[in-house]
Design a protein around this nucleic acid. Sequence first.
DNA 1: CTATGATTCAAACGAACGTATGAATCATAG
DNA 2: CTATGATTCATACGTTCGTTTGAATCATAG
Lengths: 228, 228
Amino acid sequence: MAEVRSPDTRERILDAAERLFMAHGYEGTSMRQITGEAGVNLAAVNYHLGSKKALVQEVFRRRLDWLNDERMRVLNAMEAEADGKPLKPSQIVDGFFGTLLRMADDERRGGITFLRLLGRMLTDPSEFIRAFFAHEYSEVIDRYKEALFKALPDVPKAEIVWRFHFMLGATSYAIAGTDALRVVTDWQIEEADATDRLDRLVPRLMSFLLGGLRAPLPQFSDAEAVGK
Amino acid sequence: MAEVRSPDTRERILDAAERLFMAHGYEGTSMRQITGEAGVNLAAVNYHLGSKKALVQEVFRRRLDWLNDERMRVLNAMEAEADGKPLKPSQIVDGFFGTLLRMADDERRGGITFLRLLGRMLTDPSEFIRAFFAHEYSEVIDRYKEALFKALPDVPKAEIVWRFHFMLGATSYAIAGTDALRVVTDWQIEEADATDRLDRLVPRLMSFLLGGLRAPLPQFSDAEAVGK
DNA sequence: CTATGATTCAAACGAACGTATGAATCATAG
DNA sequence: CTATGATTCATACGTTCGTTTGAATCATAG
């Protein structure tokens, strides 16, 4: 007795919203654009999702639920295998960022479109969006931070937390794929198509992240030091 | 004969816009919020700046002009000093990112507010904003890329370009200062106030960037390789 | 003081926004 | 076939948006 919940319309709305939020941001995308692109009636969003806020949250939830579960699964598997011994930093970084980046090839999980959306929205100014991410991510982040603490016992925890932050920034910006600064331009980069460039992005980014994570500790110029 | 161009109102508008764009983004900030915070009439923005688009561009231009000039000046000075020899990567990174980060302490240049605004807007979805950055930055970026090519002759140029991209992302995210993922939370980070945290952020970020820039080259698993 | 151009102001413009309504249409159970 | 609830639809509501207008006010030059 009516438990079906019309799969088609709701899904078409979420797909269109995913594309448009990626291209124009939350505030920059109107309900009329979304329903227009989805080929459904304007009122369908409020009927199926409730509101624009609920819509954008659902756009993320249907992808992030899987991502966070997968990250947890991978970390648990690695830790079970290690049997109490610390993991290698490269394993941890791959478990967190590699799992994310491999979503690019998985069209069922949103593919590159969702990755770019996520990269851009992580710095979105809307208060409730940032609050949503903080809630949705906190458990996984804490687990991975703990793993890094164990893997790098000689590095101060504060330092690891900051480097995690930096890694997130580099990754977020890379997957946002904004050519804002045309950093990656007509320089004779040999790669041809975007797919190929993406294949090579992952090992490139991983090398960079690990290099940053394992960099020598910074020297602070304060406290009992000379100047200032 | 009228060359004064009322310094006060125009500047008050730009200051208020800088704060509000930082807090709520371009699309999320209305002209009425801006003129309200600035304490000027609604029509003043269109009178002094022309339009909302022209306003946001001027908000950036009055800061970025100085930043880019300063980056050029620093690079030229270092290269003159080096007298034809390649610069050290740490010098180049400091010239580009250090010069940016030191703006945080310079209230005349917008201080931390402008830095956070810049960090967030670099991934802003609005097309014309990204185009504006691409135009405003390209010359400086090219000069610094060339310096890195010379400083790291054994690293493929494509690799350096990507790592520049990654460094930009880490920096942009760090200065955006979004606690989106609460990565930097109540973990007993010893620092007290935000100013102190910012002082220590610079050497921390620099270490991370240099570690990433100098990381071992990635291994690609394609071409004449085994799988896939 | 008067004249002139720069600036400020209150008010309004049309357009677009997110959301709500109630009738029409559809699918299915009995 | 009929009845019932789910879904779609055209339309409209009340706000807010960026921008424009023309008169009022200000500062300064002659």
